[in-house]
Design a protein around this nucleic acid. Structure first.
Lengths: 208, 208
DNA sequence: GTCTATACACAGATAGAC
DNA sequence: GTCTATCTGTGTATAGAC
């Protein structure tokens, strides 16, 4: 019997390479796990230190504030997401169907491989001041634009048919984002197959 | 230029009828808005009171703790969701296609009409103790079962074709849940049309 | 019903010893 | 590098006056 409603199922805090060396990297990983499971405001500096056997004060040798620590995680998350989308776009074909599939695969993969990072980047960024969130917003706007433009090309070529490009892209990106909440390795679901299935769903939505 | 990454776009805190009379109802609405925008741990009792021109201590005349206040909101959210799904199921036809459409419409509608309530029910419930979350978990398990069974019937009848019923239902429910994050009335999107569009997307996913 | 006052715990952050 | 100690603010919650 489940007796709680966790924000996400993942248990392991994963960061994309290269993880900063030494204590800084270890602090990032510990903070990521706690921020993802309990939220930024629900996590104390003391709790992060305790995960590493450190007292609270030590963390200030590596991060000047708790908020800067969160900002770095949010930035890493948005960078990883944007990098994957970019790579999917440039390595693919000119066919809108293949482009959408490549982008959705990348979108889903990053949410399954780094669920905690995706979760924190998406749902804890609200705790950041405008200056600290701005670099991530730039990446986010571009990621949204990538999705939209690829779908638009398919529409222009008469390959896709949707009543609203906005509703289609929110649906497609939304189902991928949700993966961060439910994915866990022990479900026995291969990430490549998951990504392929969701890419197929996206095409079905766009090309009835 | 956007300078923050809000958890959701909605500005108004809406609760389904009947909203409790008097101060209790007003406290619920104020807490809902703040919990949705800033999170449970990011919201103080003082801040909730300030929204209503009340001092912190007054709230304890209506709720015995901040956690019980959250618990009531989470329960109201799960009840509204479950009630809508149930109603959609019993009022529909026996055709799996019509059943899925009815359930997805209801699912999407409740996320668009009560985005803050849906958001808090889904993403802040982790802050509740096992005893306080349990009533909502019962409803949640049943809502998941409704989705799954309706899709399964369509598969059994040879109407739907998906490689994994789990991946299909997570995709369909996930795109609906995401609506709570982006929907706002001034987008000019009619909720009925939104629900209809997403219901169509669900069918496209299930019936290629 | 609403206030002031307050108890008590814990938060983020800093200073300086070892 | 890690510690103890501490500053200062804020948190939840309660008691009792008006």
């Amino acid at each position: 019997m489940i007796t709680s409603l966790p924000r996400l199922q993942a248990e392991e805090a994963a960061l994309p390479d290269p993880i900063p060396d030494g204590s800084k990297g270890r602090i990032l990983v510990a903070a990521l796990r706690l921020f993802a499971k309990q939220g930024f405001h629900g996590t104390s500096i003391r709790a992060i230190g305790a995960e590493l056997g450190l007292k609270a004060g030590n963390l200030y040798l590596y991060f000047e504030s708790k908020e800067k620590l969160l900002a770095e995680l949010v930035r890493l998350g948005h960078e990883a997401h944007h990098r994957r989308l970019r790579r999917a776009l440039i390595s693919g074909s000119a066919d809108p169907i293949e482009q959408v599939k490549a982008i959705v695969r990348a979108h889903v993969r990053v949410h399954a491989e780094y669920p905690m990072l995706a979760y924190v980047a998406n749902y804890e960024a609200h705790a950041l001041s405008p200056e600290l969130i701005e670099p991530s917003l730039v990446l986010r706007r571009e990621s949204v634009a990538i999705f939209t433009e690829v779908v638009q090309r398919g529409i222009d070529q008469g390959i896709f048919h949707v009543s609203s490009i906005f509703l289609a892209t929110t649906a497609i990106s939304g189902m991928g984002m949700r993966v961060a909440s439910w994915y866990r390795p022990d479900l026995g679901i291969d990430i490549a197959e998951l990504a392929e299935t969701y890419a197929q769903f996206a095409i079905r939505i766009l090309q009835p």
